[in-house]
Simulated assay, not measured.
Amino acid sequence: MDTLSLLFYTFAFVLVYAGFRVITAKSPVTAVLHLVLAFASASCVWMLLQAEFLAISLVLVYVGAVMVLFLFVVMMLDINSAVVREGFWKHFPAAGLIGVLIALEMSFVLTRGFDLPIAKPMAPEVAAVPNAKALGIELFTNYLFPVQVAAVILLVGIIAAIALTLRQRKDSHFQKPAEQVRVKKADRLRVHKVAAVVEAPAAEADANNQAGGQA
């Protein structure tokens, strides 16, 4: 067994173990952390298969953003796992049957995929280009218009989300950047001249003297 095969089986074992712990862990935080481990192991498997772009995307998007958000949400909500697990054994037979059917379908698809004829080797100039670079060339040459359309759709979604959440409420505090840019020193700083020594009024001085004499 060579080094690549050893690494593949190692990461595959860690991936299966982490996926099993995701559905069997009692703590939601533990389940989320094992899901992060599963994503990292899958990324390593994709890296061994020379799919660098997919591996980097999985780490940046899911591990770096989505799973961190899930972890914060789970820790902030303080979910009661006992309530969530109610009725687990009641629905276990149906879930097990569905799982077996999915496993059979996946094995059927995989075994049929292994019977495909061997593809012709790529040209040396194509094989020398990294996957991420080849994908960038395809996106910005042959698929430039769909990429631009997708970018516009995402921009519209971002603007719509901001517009839906931006509501004028009396109890909300917000800043106006235009006013902050035009602000001057006189608008924020006021200098008041105060006398160095202030003499006490005569009535207060007499009252203080009388109080001192009575004491």
Score class of each variant (00 low, 15 high):
Ser41Asn: 05
Ala42His: 08
Ala42Phe: 11
Ala42Glu: 09
Ala42Val: 03
Ser43Lys: 02
Ser43Val: 05
Ser43Gly: 11
Cys44Phe: 08
Cys44Ser: 11
Cys44Gly: 06
Val45Pro: 04
Val45Ser: 06
Val45Thr: 03
Trp46Asn: 07
Trp46Thr: 01
Trp46Glu: 11
Trp46Ala: 07
Met47Cys: 06
Met47Gln: 07
Met47Ser: 06
Met47Leu: 07
Leu48Val: 03
Leu48Tyr: 00
Leu48Asp: 00
Leu48Glu: 04
Leu49Ala: 00
Leu49Thr: 03
Gln50Phe: 00
Ala51Ser: 04
Ala51Tyr: 05
Glu52Cys: 03
Glu52Ser: 03
Glu52Arg: 04
Phe53Pro: 04
Phe53Gly: 02
Leu54Met: 08
Leu54Lys: 09
Leu54Gln: 12
Ala55Val: 01
Ala55Asp: 06
Ala55Thr: 02
Ala55Gly: 07
Ile56Glu: 13
Ile56Met: 08
Ser57Gly: 07
Ser57Val: 01
Leu58Asn: 14
Leu58Cys: 08
Val59Thr: 12
Val59Glu: 15
Leu60Asp: 15
Leu60Pro: 14
Leu60Met: 12
Leu60Lys: 08
Val61Ile: 10
Val61Ala: 12
Val61Thr: 13
Tyr62Leu: 09
Tyr62Trp: 11
Tyr62Thr: 09
Val63Lys: 10
Val63Ser: 11
Gly64Tyr: 11
Ala65Phe: 15
Ala65Gly: 09
Ala65Lys: 12
Ala65Asp: 12
Val66His: 14
Val66Leu: 13
Met67Cys: 12
Met67Ala: 11
Met67Leu: 15
Val68Leu: 15
Leu69Lys: 15
Leu69Gly: 11
Phe70Lys: 15
Phe70Asp: 09
Leu71Ser: 12
Leu71His: 13
Phe72Trp: 14
Phe72Lys: 15
Phe72Val: 10
Phe72Ile: 10
Val73Ser: 14
Val73Met: 14
Val74Tyr: 10
Val74Arg: 09
Val74Ser: 09
Met75Arg: 15
Met75Tyr: 11
Met75Phe: 10
Met76Arg: 15
Met76Phe: 13
Met76Pro: 13
Met76Glu: 14
Leu77Ser: 07
Leu77Ala: 09
Leu77His: 13
Leu77Val: 07
Leu77Lys: 14
Leu77Pro: 12
Asp78His: 12
Asp78Ser: 09
Asp78Cys: 07
Ile79Asn: 05
Ile79Trp: 06
Asn80Gln: 03
Asn80Ile: 01
Asn80Arg: 05
Ser81Ala: 01
Ser81Glu: 08
Ser81Gly: 02
Ala82Lys: 03
Ala82His: 03
Val83Lys: 06
Val83Met: 01
Val83Pro: 06
Val84Trp: 02
Val84Ser: 02
Arg85Gly: 05
Arg85Asn: 04
Arg85Ser: 04
Arg85Trp: 03
Glu86His: 05
Glu86Arg: 05
Glu86Thr: 02
Glu86Asp: 03
Gly87Ile: 02
Gly87Ser: 04
Gly87Val: 01
Gly87Arg: 00
Gly87Thr: 04
Phe88Trp: 06
Trp89Phe: 00
Trp89Tyr: 02
Lys90Thr: 10
Lys90Trp: 01
Lys90Ser: 00
His91Ala: 04
Phe92Gly: 01
Phe92Glu: 00
Phe92Ile: 06
Phe92Pro: 09
